[in-house]
């Protein structure tokens, strides 16, 4: 798509969308939202970028390798936080009872592991959307070339 209007608008919009996505992730424990929603917003911003420019341009911004690192990293992060509760002498995925809770309810840095877990989920969801979009569209593109 080489429409200058779309490109310009997207270039302007994408950072805002991403900031909004991060907001949704980070304020998941305070307001409606959370890892899944915020991750979806983040992922869709990248998809938007790739759609409006070119697939390759998108791939330059966020390489396949990086996205698969993020992909696994989100899950590993989640499990490691779960094991943190275990390391602190409590059960798997324990939050406040294991001493992870800090801050007053309502503040940004509060709720202990919930914030961190949301981050992991957000990264995971965003990279999943992006990776899936990329692989499927590349597949289609290469299939078209062969025909």
């Amino acid at each position: 798509m080489k429409d200058i209007v779309i490109r310009t608008v997207c270039r302007v919009i994408v950072p805002f969308v991403q900031v909004y996505g991060l907001y949704v992730i980070f304020h998941g424990h305070l307001s409606p939202g959370g890892g899944f929603a915020g991750g979806a917003i983040l992922g869709s911003s990248m998809v938007l970028f790739a759609l409006s420019f070119h697939l390759e341009a998108g791939a330059q911004k966020l390489g396949h390798e990086t996205s698969s690192y993020l992909e696994s990293g989100g899950g590993i992060w989640y499990i490691l936080i779960g094991l943190l509760g275990l390391a602190l002498g409590s059960n798997f995925l324990t939050n406040r009872a294991a001493g992870l809770g800090f801050g007053l309810p309502g503040q940004l840095f509060s709720g202990g592991m919930i914030f961190l877990l949301s981050l992991g989920i957000g990264v995971k969801v965003a990279s999943t959307m992006f990776t899936l979009f990329y692989n499927l569209s590349e597949e289609e593109g290469s299939g078209g070339d062969h025909q």
């Binding site: 690192y69 899950g75 499990i79 059960n91």
Partner: peptide, 21 residues
Amino acid sequence: HLPVISIALLLLASFVMPLLR
């Protein structure tokens, strides 16, 4: 904790697996 650790270990291993390049 061993049951949940074994599940977590398997999941962790499967997450790590695509990173081995």
